[in-house]
C-alpha cells in the first residue's frame, strides 16, 4: 500500500518537517503513520521538545545579565586588536 511507511521513513520525514514544509503526500503519509504508531508520535514530540528547549536555552543566555565579558577578556581583545590592526 502506497500510504504505508516504515518507522525509519517516518523518522526521516519528521526531521525534515522541522526544516521545510512537507509535500502533500509526505504530510498525508506521516499523518497516517502517526495515527497508528505511538513510538513515532513520541519521537515527533521529542524532536519538538529538543528544538524548543534549545531556543529557550538561547534566550536564557541572551538575557542573563550575569554573563559578561570579564575585564581580562576586554584587555585581551584590545591587545589582540592592537596587534592585528597594524
Amino acid at each position: 500500500m502506497k500510504f504505508m511507511i516504515t518507522c525509519k521513513q517516518a523518522s526521516q520525514i519528521i526531521s525534515q518537517s522541522l526544516d521545510n514544509p512537507l509535500s502533500w503526500s509526505d504530510r498525508m503519509k506521516l499523518k497516517f503513520h502517526l495515527f497508528i504508531c505511538d513510538a513515532c508520535t513520541r519521537f515527533n514530540r521529542q524532536l519538538h521538545l529538543i528544538s524548543n528547549a534549545l531556543k529557550s536555552m538561547r534566550s536564557d543566555t541572551e538575557n542573563d545579565s550575569t554573563i559578561q565579558l570579564t575585564s581580562e577578556a576586554k584587555i585581551r581583545i584590545l591587545n589582540n586588536i592592537q596587534a592585528k590592526n597594524h
Binding site: M57, T61, L69, A73, L78
Partner: peptide, 21 residues
C-alpha cells in the same frame, strides 16, 4: 582604538551573550 574601548564597554557584554547563546 578609543572607539573599540567605548564599544566594548557599552555593548561588549551584550555582544558576548549574543555570541555565546
Amino acid at each position: 582604538m578609543s572607539n573599540v574601548n567605548d564599544w566594548l564597554n557599552e555593548h561588549g557584554d551584550y555582544l558576548y551573550r549574543f555570541a555565546l547563546a
